[in-house]
Amino acid sequence: MADPRTGGILIEQLRKRYGSGDTAVDALKGVDMHVAPGEVVGLVGPSGSGKSTLLKCLGAVIEPSGGRMSLGGEVIYDDGWKTSDLRVLRRDRIGFVFQAPYLIPFLDVTDNVALMPMLAGRSNDDARRRARELLDALDVGHRAQAMPAQLSGGEQQRVAIARALVNRPPVILADEPTAPLDSERALSVVAILNQMARQYATAIIIVTHDEKIIPTFKRIYQIRDGRTHELTGEETP
């Protein structure tokens, strides 16, 4: 396995406290975690354990209270943000896949994917070319001119994965990406994420409660009461 310190995701003693004084709540109490480039790792845990808080910190949606985070070999947080523009960080270094695809209903499939590189300053032609390459790789190239409402649920999620990959971020955060899918489509989505991780040397975290896909992970972290530990084979849910 590649050394995660040279890329991927590295989290060291990450903490997040909500509120202050007697009403303070420590959602994260010193999380340590690593995901190497090209690796897909599962993150499990009961409701309220800190999964959403951890993903929001990693996605630069909320600010941690302490600790250190590195994405793609770059320190982005070390007891404070190390970048002045979090919007650019989210756009260029982090891909997001959610439970719902959140495709823009009035744009066709190609432009839903091409929008991100367009926002990053690429020409429309280059952005659409890159979008079509990914759509072909994900076996939805034949739907390139379709509108989101014309797609099946599995097709919509593949388009969402293409959108997450199109700026070639070193990190993808997937939050319950298979929850609305049947077993066959859920396993297909996980297989695609594994393939894309290897092809683009992307580090991927999948937060899930989906028992259908948990056996597919080679490594799983469990978060409970604000702390993580890596599960062994005997502990796997």
Score class of each variant (00 low, 15 high):
Pro101Gln: 07
Leu103Trp: 01
Leu103Phe: 06
Asp108His: 15
Val109Phe: 03
Thr110Trp: 10
Asp111Glu: 13
Val113Phe: 08
Met116His: 08
Pro117Asp: 02
Ala120Met: 11
Gly121Pro: 13
Gly121His: 06
Arg122Ser: 14
Ser123Glu: 03
Ser123Asp: 03
Asn124Glu: 11
Arg128Lys: 14
Arg129Phe: 03
Arg129Asp: 04
Arg130Val: 06
Ala131Phe: 04
Ala131Tyr: 02
Ala131Ser: 09
Ala131Asp: 03
Leu135Ala: 05
Leu135Tyr: 00
Leu135Cys: 11
Ala137Asn: 04
Asp139His: 15
Val140Trp: 01
Gly141Pro: 05
Arg143Glu: 01
Arg143Val: 00
Arg143Leu: 05
Ala144Val: 04
Ala149Glu: 04
Gln150Leu: 11
Ser152Ile: 09
Gly153Phe: 05
Gly154Ala: 07
Gly154Asn: 04
Gln156Asp: 00
Gln157Thr: 06
Gln157Lys: 10
Gln157Glu: 00
Arg158Ser: 09
Ala160His: 07
Ala160Gln: 02
Ala162Gln: 04
Arg163Asp: 04
Arg168Lys: 14
Pro170Lys: 12
Ile172Cys: 03
Ile172Asn: 02
Asp175Trp: 04
Pro177Met: 08
Thr178Leu: 14
Ala179His: 09
Leu181Ser: 03
Arg185Cys: 00
Ala186Leu: 12
Ser188Lys: 14
Val189Thr: 07
Ile192Leu: 14
Asn194Thr: 05
Gln195Lys: 15
Met196Trp: 01
Met196Ile: 05
Ala197Lys: 10
Arg198Lys: 15
Gln199Trp: 06
Gln199Ser: 13
Gln199Phe: 11
Tyr200Asn: 12
Ala201Tyr: 03
Ala201Ile: 05
Thr202Trp: 01
